[in-house]
């Protein structure tokens, strides 16, 4: 890995770290979702610290060049992130549905109570 490549990877990783920390600080991103992106930053830095990891990965999956392994794992990571969000989305949409249903029934009951009060 050339020095230029190392510097570039570190800049990217540090930028991700700072961006995530800033988003959490401003309350735009919840702590519970930040770990995933902080992990992404760590993964980018790993080959800079220990290049052998990338070499080992490339060999293990049977790839010829290191960039293949890099891209493959990057895409794999994004797929897993996508699935994770789909799971969260499924449970959130169930929660929203339940809330709307309960709200609708509660609103009807409030209206009935109000009407009952008005009649007496």
């Amino acid at each position: 890995m050339t020095t230029r490549q190392k510097v570039f990877a570190i800049v990217i990783a540090v930028s991700i770290f700072l961006l995530i920390l800033e988003l959490v600080r401003r309350g735009k991103l919840k702590e519970e979702y930040s770990w995933l992106w902080l992990l992404a930053g760590v993964i980018i830095i790993l080959p800079v610290i220990k290049y052998e990891i990338l070499a080992w990965l490339t060999q293990t999956i049977g790839a010829v060049v290191h960039t293949t392994a890099l891209f493959l794992f990057a895409i794999l990571f994004l797929i897993l992130v996508g699935i994770f969000f789909s799971i969260r989305l499924s449970s959130l949409s169930t929660q929203v549905k339940n809330l709307i249903q309960e709200l609708a029934i509660a609103r009807l009951e409030i209206d009935e109570l109000k009407r009952g009060k008005a009649d007496t």
Partner: peptide, 25 residues
């Protein structure tokens, strides 16, 4: 009719389910 209003469109299944929940309570 007694009318129950969803705040926004949830779909057919969720709509009859609101009816089930109402009947249950």
């Amino acid at each position: 009719a007694i009318v129950i209003n969803h705040s926004f469109n949830l779909g057919y299944g969720a709509t009859i389910q609101t009816g089930y929940k109402y009947a249950l309570c």
